Computed example of a mutant assay.
Amino acid sequence: MQIIRSKSFTGKKAWDSLPIANMKGITTKLHWTDKPYKWHINDGEEVFVVLDGQVEMHYKQQAKEQIALLNTGDIFYASIGTEHVAHPLGEARILVVEQEGSI
């Protein structure tokens, strides 16, 4: 049993994470960041939940870049092959559920 107070979690550098669970190869991590990530495509599906802050999620759909503003409580689902990059607006805390070893 574990209780995590996500608003208290702060990393030493952007995209530091706190591993929460690994359920048969699917990981759940709490991330803290104040800087964009990098364009990437995950090895599988990804669920990206904004727990605190705001994030501009840039993603490509039919080779065209789209941007969605995600607020606290919003969820972004990246299906297999979705190229995307998260740009926090200030500090953000994000819960990420994805295949183990995914970038």
Rank of each mutant, 00 (worst) to 15 (best):
I67W: 00
I80H: 14
S17C: 09
T33A: 14
T27D: 08
V50Y: 01
P36S: 14
F9I: 05
W15I: 07
E45L: 06
G73Q: 10
I26Y: 07
R93V: 05
T10V: 13
V49K: 11
G25K: 09
A21Q: 11
S6Y: 14
L89D: 14
Q54E: 15
E98R: 10
L51C: 08
E46L: 06
Q61K: 11
Y37C: 15
H84M: 06
A86W: 01
V85D: 02
H58R: 06
D16P: 03
E45V: 06
D52K: 14
P36Q: 09
M1V: 08
R93K: 13
Q2S: 13
E56Q: 10
Q99E: 15
V49H: 11
M57S: 07
A92I: 09
Q99A: 14
T72H: 07
A14M: 11
G25D: 10
V85T: 14
L30G: 04
M23A: 07
F76G: 01
I4L: 12
K29W: 00
T28Y: 00
K12T: 13
L51E: 07
K60Q: 10
L18W: 12
V97D: 02
L89K: 14
K64R: 09
M1F: 11
G101V: 12
V47Q: 03
G73P: 05
V96D: 02
K12E: 13
Y59C: 03
L18K: 08
F48T: 00
G44N: 12
G81W: 15
E46Y: 02
I41L: 08
V97A: 05
S17V: 01
T33I: 11
Q99R: 14
I20G: 03
I103S: 09
I26R: 04
K35Q: 15
Q54L: 06
A86Q: 02
I41T: 10
P19R: 00
H31A: 07
K7I: 13
E45N: 08
L18T: 07
I67M: 11
G44Y: 03
K38V: 15
T28I: 05
Y77M: 07
I75Q: 02
E91I: 00
L70E: 02
I75F: 00
G53V: 05
S79N: 06
H87G: 08
Q61I: 00
G73R: 09
S17P: 05
H87R: 15
F9L: 08
Y59E: 02
P88R: 01
F48A: 03
K24M: 12
T72D: 13
E45H: 06
T28Q: 10
T28M: 10
T10D: 10
W32S: 02
I4N: 10
D43N: 15
E83R: 15
K64W: 00
K12G: 12
D34N: 15
L69Q: 05
F9R: 04
I20P: 01
W32G: 00
K24N: 13
H87P: 13
P36M: 07
H87A: 12
A63V: 01
P88I: 01
N42A: 11
D16E: 12
L89W: 08
G53T: 05
D16K: 04
I67D: 03
D34W: 10
Q61W: 00
Q99Y: 12
I75R: 08
E91R: 13
S8A: 10
L51Y: 04
V49D: 03
I80E: 14
G101F: 10
K38C: 15
G90L: 06
Y77V: 11
I41Y: 04
G73N: 09
E98F: 09
D52H: 07
E45I: 03
L18I: 06
G73D: 08
G11L: 03
I20T: 07
